[in-house]
Amino acid sequence: MNFFKLSSIAFAAAFLSAGAVSAATITASNGGTVIASPLNVGEDNPTNSSIQAFNEGVDVLLLADLGVDGGTPISAGTRVDSHMIFLNTRGRTDVTDTATFTFSEMILGIMSSQAGTNLFASDGIVNGPVTYTGGNYGDNRGLEGSDTADFINVVGGMFSVNVGMHVTEPGDWVRVITASSVSPVPVPAGMLLLPTGLIALGAMRRRKKRKTA
């Protein structure tokens, strides 16, 4: 393989790696845990005995305003990440639990009302790889009167939420919408100059060949 082919491959690899992206992260404390995103969510699927969270959509471009509880809708054109916090016991097992979840990006809003209106409306928008199926749990999927979900103010914005849940049946669910963690990564200046250098080197080699011919 000649020098120019190798250089082209190296340039392409460097360009692609410079543009790599990653999802927002969740850190759990005060008893909470983070799990892998389930592919399907239903009335008793998944179930747990302590509060857990998982990621949903990553870098979702909102095509219309997105309603959230107790605040101004998130504007169309915003790129967001979505996360779900839940306590979902099997049957009518009585469980009370608290937890804290901290996100790597600023919280833009939550969806937690008892009727779950904003939860249902956003299921097919910010759910990412997760499919939400029907069931009796849907009528009261949000938080009930004895449940809480409180933001923790952090310098520069809101990045954490405290949750307290008391659940028998159905489960309690809170969707947290954060700013997207995905942003273009600038290509290193050296990479931008590489094509120019390759062109110049090629011209030099052609001149050298003509002189020796």
Rank of each mutant, 00 (worst) to 15 (best):
M204Q: 10
L16F: 08
R79P: 02
V68K: 01
L61C: 07
N2I: 07
F86C: 05
D139G: 14
G77L: 09
A149E: 10
Q114L: 08
V41I: 13
L62H: 04
E43L: 07
W173A: 00
V185E: 11
D150A: 09
R210I: 11
D97T: 08
N162V: 03
I74C: 08
S75M: 12
G171F: 00
S180T: 14
L198Q: 14
A121R: 06
D172S: 11
P129T: 03
S146D: 12
I51A: 01
A189K: 14
V68H: 02
S160W: 04
V174W: 00
L119R: 00
N55P: 00
G157R: 07
S122R: 01
A23R: 10
D65C: 08
V21Q: 10
R141F: 00
A18P: 13
D44Y: 15
G71W: 06
M84E: 02
P186Q: 13
R210A: 13
F3L: 14
T212F: 09
E144F: 02
F4G: 11
Q114N: 11
I199F: 12
L66W: 11
L143M: 07
I177S: 09
A13Y: 01
M1H: 05
L63R: 11
V58M: 08
T212R: 15
D139F: 08
F101I: 02
H83Y: 01
G164E: 09
H166V: 12
V163L: 07
N88K: 02
P195E: 10
D147C: 05
L108I: 10
G135W: 12
